[in-house]
């Protein structure tokens, strides 16, 4: 059916995941960190859908990825609201400046 096979998709998923992790680790911009999270979730999503096609996971993988997409959208909305609040307090969205709770 599909000449590409499972491992091609898994590779793409892995690259997306790693890029997302790097992005989360290095970006000091709160919105940048959010984008990293989105990339990580997408890497996982590719794996879900790829497994759903190529293994016995069946339609469950697609449904799981649908839930991931919906929850990612919700998470982005809440996180952006928090970022806006943070900006109102600090006039920046540099996450390293959020040090009030440092003991």
């Amino acid at each position: 059916m599909d000449p590409v096979g499972l491992s091609g998709y898994l590779t793409v998923g892995a690259v997306l995941f790693v890029c997302g992790v790097i992005c989360m680790a290095t970006k000091r911009n709160a919105v940048g960190v959010l984008m990293g999270v989105e990339l990580v979730l997408n890497g996982a999503n590719i794996n879900f859908v790829a497994f759903s096609r190529h293994t016995a996971l069946g339609l469950d993988g697609q449904i799981a990825s649908l839930f991931v997409i919906v929850l990612a959208a919700a998470e982005a909305a809440v996180a952006l609201a928090i970022v806006l609040n943070f900006y109102n307090n600090h006039l920046t969205i540099d996450v390293d400046r959020a040090v009030e709770l440092k003991g």
Binding site: V12, V15, L16, C19, G20, G36, L39
Partner: peptide, 8 residues
Amino acid sequence: CGGAVGVA
């Protein structure tokens, strides 16, 4: 992958 690297 290129887009992801670009983001990073």
